[in-house]
């Protein structure tokens, strides 16, 4: 698949800032600050964080899907060079479907409950191409089969509530990919699924990604899922990216105590390591971010310097970046088996 300029990243997010105005308040509170990352053509990038990290908001800003009271207040979101934050509604509308599309977590609420699922795929396809009804129907059937929907002919005539979670998700993916988008935004699409079904959907997404050459920006809290799907990864905490780099590098040797904490806390079904440790304390709530490095109250390596100042991503070479100033101390302790 040729791209016009394969060296240009498909999506560039630069210094994105998002503010949230809680109900009843007048003062907006920052939810995402100075987030920057890129997605190249054909690449899968993971955006990982826990609750309150701002990862979902970041994702939704790209397509302008922010709820009331939430606004992007700074930075740029460049898709093929066009700033989506400043683009007119018409441009965004044209982009959806063929340029950028999104897959959500809960298919029950993102599929129309009163329309048959086949119709929804057909509608998605016909939104961008002027096909006849029968052509569109065939395309929908083909798509559904391709997504592994068994007995597609029958399933397409059902309503969303009549399908299982896994099937609903396949239908949603079919509808989202009906127009072969260049970039797929995924908002935790497998979190609500059973693990065996999750594995099927992950495999499906991988196959589709290879086949269609599309890029993926995958938001999740599950590190292991990211390991399966993505090449690169951005770790978010309290509205900022704290570490970024190749998945293989990050998990082998994290360059940020939070990433290390997440890795240590992820249960290991192969029980390579017996000790499961969490991160002490609690994630700060919106508007209560600590001064300096947002993670410092929970960090075992924090010093006086961590309590004030700006902590942005610094390049650490090898395509990696981290916001931590004590990477050496982190590696020291890991080397000494303190894990």
């Amino acid at each position: 698949m040729t791209s016009t300029s394969s060296s240009e990243p498909l999506l560039v997010v630069e210094d994105l800032c998002i503010d949230v105005t809680p109900v009843g308040d007048k003062k907006p509170v920052p939810a995402v600050r100075n987030v920057s990352f890129q997605v190249a053509a054909g690449e899968a990038v993971g955006l990982v964080g826990e609750s309150g990290s701002g990862k979902s908001l970041t994702l939704r800003t790209i397509l302008g899907l922010l709820p009331a009271g939430v606004k992007a207040t700074g930075g740029r979101v460049l898709f093929e060079g066009v700033d989506l934050l400043k683009a007119p509604k018409k441009t965004l509308k044209n982009l959806r479907g063929t340029g950028i599309t999104m897959i959500f977590q809960e298919p029950m609420t993102s599929l129309n409950p009163i329309t048959k699922v086949g119709e929804q795929i057909i509608d998605a396809a016909r939104a961008k191409h002027s096909w006849s009804k029968s052509d569109a129907r065939n395309h929908a059937l083909r798509l559904a089969r391709h997504m592994g929907v068994p007995d597609a002919e029958n399933v397409l005539s059902l309503y969303p509530h009549e399908l299982s979670g896994g099937l609903r998700q396949r239908v949603m993916i079919a509808a989202a990919l009906a127009c072969r988008p260049k970039l797929v935004l995924c908002d935790e699409p497998t979190t609500a699924l059973d693990v065996t079904i999750q594995a099927q959907i992950i495999r499906l997404l991988l196959e589709l990604k290879d086949e269609l050459g599309m890029s993926m920006l995958y938001v999740t809290h599950d590190l292991a899922v990211v390991a399966q799907l993505c090449q690169r990864l951005e770790v978010m905490y309290s509205g900022s990216i704290v570490e970024s780099g190749l998945v293989s590098d990050l998990f082998r040797e994290p360059n940020h105590p939070y990433t290390q904490g997440l890795v240590n806390a992820t249960p290991d079904v192969d029980a390579v390591v017996d000790l499961l440790t969490g991160i002490r304390g609690n994630a700060p709530t919106l508007g209560n971010w600590p001064e300096g490095c947002a993670f410092h109250p929970r960090c075992d390596f924090a010093t006086e310097e961590c309590t004030s100042g700006e902590f942005s991503l610094r390049d650490t070479g090898d395509g990696r970046a981290s916001a931590c100033i004590h990477i050496e101390r982190l590696h020291e302790s890991t080397r000494h088996g303190a894990r």
Binding site: A224, V225, S248, V269
Partner: peptide, 16 residues
């Protein structure tokens, strides 16, 4: 089915 936290885990996605 359980995804592993291994670096090149995407090379072996097994699903029932």
């Amino acid at each position: 089915s359980i995804p592993r936290l291994q670096p090149d885990a995407h090379e072996e996605v097994v699903a029932p």
